[in-house]
Design a protein around this nucleic acid. Structure first.
Lengths: 219, 219
DNA sequence: TAGATTGTTAATCGATTAACAATC
DNA sequence: TAGATTGTTAATCGATTAACAATC
């Protein structure tokens, strides 16, 4: 009775599928770079490192973009996935915290090539203000609101120390940012409607250590 | 009939649980730093950002380390989780590729504090050999085998460009490395018995972009 | 038409969660 | 004993996968 009417065809794509769409997009880009114009689900699955049944199931949530007996047109599927993810548009982002990691992120070419444009680098350390990193000015944290408004920033990246992460997140939210990528090794709490994803470098190593330890024990 | 006999009590911890153990460990460290000596599953779950039922279920795979009616001893549980993960021991790691990201990883304090010791930084670029980053020498990629043997390295980190990732992984595997953390935006293929985890910075941003786009569409 | 490959079904598997008996 | 909180059960939910009908 309360079905949302919409001209959009795709609805409720499972989270696990959403997380894999960028992987498929990257694989398609690689195939395109190699001059491949058509591929089967088997070939694309191989390039993406997943099971082909899973790939077809995932793609079926987007629509029916393949041709039975033939496969997928690389360029066409690439465009459809990019559109679905939203990377056909430009996403201005701000990075807060310009230590080693912030530096690496600012220079990361993978952002720009996928429509993410770093419009500002913010740091609490006054001595760094005015510095230029990767062609972008380092500015005071207090400029956040102005920058968010000027550029229509919806996505913020936290590369600040753990102790500052919650404060940074609070300020981001109050300025209107609704998506946060958190590299600080700290849990941050945000209101409903704000998405947070986190990347914790040492957690990934710890997961490997766990399995490594088990290998050693069973040897 | 083929049950493995072992003095170890914990068996077959689900992957989803393994991935959360480091999060619990971090939360416990934070509590300990705040001088808190005992906590309930509710309190720890809050600090870790998970549901308390899930936390208790997760901990139950390790054993029975709490006290009904009382809660968990922070130090004791911390030790048990650290032991289970394997971070009570020292893990020598090598990092291959010393660009911006490799630089940031080499300097990342969260590694050392959790028992991961960067024993070498390797780079194909000869002009960087001899350089010292974060107190560690940058050495030729060809030294990998010697370093792995000398230090007993089991874990390798790939911070090289995407195009080099598979080659680096192959070399790591042939030198005896059995766990790889891959930061290169490329799928790498390894033999059975070798664990790979990957961190792709731009994929996380793309997942946020997808949700951001949906918020905009439904507004 | 014959061969190939998609898109979908349905079975299985694993993860989450609320509820509560056990017990400190 | 009464109150609190764990550890476990069982129900639910979501994700994966093999198999195959649909169809190019």
């Amino acid at each position: 009775m309360t079905a949302r009417s919409s001209s959009e065809s795709s609805r409720d794509i499972p989270e696990a599928t959403v997380a894999r769409l960028p992987v498929y997009l990257r694989a398609l880009n690689t195939l395109a770079d190699d001059g491949i114009r058509t591929c089967s689900s088997e070939e694309l699955a191989l390039a993406a490192g997943v099971n082909s049944a899973k790939l077809r199931k995932d793609l079926s949530y987007l629509g029916s973009y393949g041709t039975r007996g033939v496969g997928y047109d690389v360029d066409y599927l690439r465009y459809q996935i990019a559109r679905e993810i939203g990377v056909t548009q430009d996403w201005p982002v701000v990075i807060v915290g310009i230590g080693n990691l912030g530096h690496a992120l600012a220079n990361y070419s993978g952002f720009r090539s996928r429509g993410f444009r770093v419009v500002a680098l913010l740091d609490a350390d006054e001595s760094r203000h005015g510095e230029v990193v990767a062609g972008v000015d380092v500015r005071p944290f207090g400029d956040l609101e102005e920058i968010v408004e000027t550029h229509g920033v919806a996505i913020g990246v936290i590369a600040a120390p753990a102790g500052a992460a919650q404060d940074v997140a609070d300020r981001m939210v109050s300025c209107g940012i609704t998506s946060i990528l958190n590299f600080a090794p700290a849990v941050i709490v945000v209101p409903d409607g704000v998405d947070v994803r986190k990347v914790d470098l040492s957690i990934e190593l710890q997961i490997l250590a766990y399995h490594e330890q088990r290998k050693a024990n069973s040897a």
